[in-house]
């Protein structure tokens, strides 16, 4: 009897172990599949030519597969979104975490949560019908679908993650730090910006890295507002990101072109992995303190 129940418990333990290992399996599956699918095209085209080629003409003959325009567009777009989104998110987070009356805080927090919950295609739709025409009008362009439009949409999309992560970091700053600063004669605002913010800098850095990850991985909203032409990036030109390069040609691609799309996904995946490592670094440093 005792043996029987022991066997039963062992079986249950085994089942849970398998369930626990599923996430690891999924990560391995994704990595392995991307590598297997992505390597052949890079081999055929040549790593250097693939990464640093400036023209992408997958349907021309002879086709040329250079993804530098996509890489640069993704980097520029993400940098622009961070440049616009981080300051707004940062100041909002400081206000909400430190200064806002409870009622205001609740209302704004709800708004931020809603912003986070809006599907990316809805951002794309609003961007396509409001932002793109107004950019066209304001800057007198022939087409408003541009890197600039993508940057603005991305900046808005990363706001919620920046605000909520920075807020958590700011709220966990020990009260004694602030009290000491106040007692030494600093005003509350000076205290928050010169004591609380430096104390929470790991968390704030993590929020920025998270924003970078969101921005670089966003596909649908960018596809709808950026015009989707494989140009080298320039602010008011139509561009194509790494994500949209994959999404836009997948449905009709074949052969080497299809394999090249997998290689683009592999490059994107490497970027994301780098960002993950950075994120872990900042979060761990925060925990250790």
């Amino acid at each position: 009897m005792k043996n029987k129940s022991k066997v039963f418990e062992d079986i249950i333990h085994g089942i849970f172990l398998i369930l626990g290992l599923i996430t690891v399996g999924c990560v391995l599956l994704i990595t392995v599949y991307l590598i297997i699918a992505g390597i052949p095209a890079i081999r055929e085209i040549g790593l250097f030519k693939f990464l640093f080629g400036k023209t992408w003409a997958s349907t021309a003959s002879p086709p040329s597969y250079g993804i530098l325009p996509f890489i640069m567009s993704s980097i520029y777009g993400t940098a622009g979104a961070i440049l616009l989104g981080v300051p707004v998110g940062f100041f909002t987070a400081v206000y909400l975490a430190k200064l806002a009356p409870l009622k205001v805080k609740k209302v704004v927090e709800t708004a931020v949560k809603l912003l986070a919950g809006i599907p990316s295609v809805v951002y794309g739709l609003v961007g396509m019908l409001v932002l793109v025409p107004s950019i066209k009008k304001v800057f007198n362009l022939s087409d408003g679908a541009s890197l600039f439009a993508a940057i603005i949409v991305l900046a808005i999309m990363i706001l919620p993650s920046i605000i909520s992560v920075s807020m958590t970091a700011l709220e966990s700053v020990p009260k004694e730090y602030e009290d000491a600063s106040l007692a030494l004669g600093a005003t509350p605002i000076e205290t928050y910006f010169r004591v609380s913010v430096p104390a929470a800098k790991s968390g704030i850095a993590a929020s920025v890295v998270l924003g970078v990850g969101r921005a670089i991985g966003e596909a649908m909203a960018v596809m709808m507002v950026s015009g989707n032409v494989p140009n080298m990036p320039s602010l008011f030109q139509s561009v194509r990101f790494l994500t949209t390069a994959v999404a836009s040609e997948m449905s009709y691609s074949s052969g080497l072109q299809r394999q090249a799309l997998f290689s683009i996904a592999l490059v994107l995946f490497l970027f994301i992995m780098l960002i993950n490592v950075a994120l872990n670094f900042f979060l761990k440093r925060d925990k250790e303190k």
Binding site: I30, A37, G213, I216, V246, A247, M250, F262, A265, L268
Partner: peptide, 9 residues
């Protein structure tokens, strides 16, 4: 952290 387009692929 993996973007949804990679999941799709």
């Amino acid at each position: 952290g993996i973007p949804s387009i990679i999941y799709g692929l």
